[in-house]
Amino acid sequence: MQRSDRRSFLKMAGTSLGIGVLYTAVPAAAASGEIGEMFDFTGKKNGERVTPFTFVQLSDAHVGFNGPPDPLGTKAFERAVEMINQLPQQPDLVLFTGDLTHDSEEKDVHAQRMKQFLGISCRMKVPKIMYVPGEHDAGLDGGTLYREFLGESNYSFDHRGVHFIALDNVSRAKPEVGPEQIAWLKKDLARFPKSAPIVVFTHRPLFDLKPEWEWFTSDGDEVMDVLSPYENVTVLYGHIHRDHEQEQGHVHHYAARSLIFAFPDPENAPEKKPIPFDKDHPFKNLGIRMVHEKVGARPLLNSVAVEDVELTVREFSGINGVQQILKNPSL
């Protein structure tokens, strides 16, 4: 295989579902007939060939939250579940990037909220649903309740040739990953070639997005030092209740919207206050993201149709890039 072929081997696409984000991992070289050769190449390197699949990111349901500005409770979350179940192409997995529940001082109340969350989450007809905690799930008790319900808060797994890593940057109460988990991360990644496709999912941003709003991870730089030698890394996170995209060397970061209320753009807002609820558009800013009705000659259909934003392009890596693909939210 020629070196240039390795560049275009996998694309990951993010799709606005109305609520949540659908990502599609597809072989970018399929159209050029190079796919089999590339699968062989990566199969040898990674132990498993990359084959196309989709997954969804959901975030920040805050089940149990009942204050202003959101009078809807779990309605946005339940709507997201319904929409996922109605997708023409069922995703292989769902990644939930934290704040599944809203915290409570009373353990019984918090446990009840976790049960309610799982009752809704388990309605998804998706083979695999993977979680990481947010600070509202694990900040008060160091993650004890979270682990009782969902097991370890950091782990990794492989799916169709892509390596997924769940990072916990909330259970130490402060916004940090901690030295033990960073050591684990190094060990976890050691077996992979630098071209391996890697998806990290976590709750807080791993970079200083807005430290005075607590939108950061204090040892995020150390995590990035571990990740940055790898050429195809995507980091998915929540916490900020709004869209955000950031490129940092080889690593691309994407935030998902919340399922409870939205925060404003920190560049323009003097304070971290939720965007007021709009009763005429109850799900506004909660993931509905109508960007284009069509791009070029390609209409937006019920299936993933538009390559809207090229998010990742690397010259000598195994992955051509992450593409964000936007879909009609009326689906």
Partner: peptide, 18 residues
């Protein structure tokens, strides 16, 4: 003018402690 925050999660309104 600098905003100092509590960055040790301390409860339901922690996000506004500054």
């Amino acid at each position: 003018t600098f905003t100092t925050i509590c960055d040790h999660f301390c409860g339901v309104n922690h996000g506004n402690m500054k």
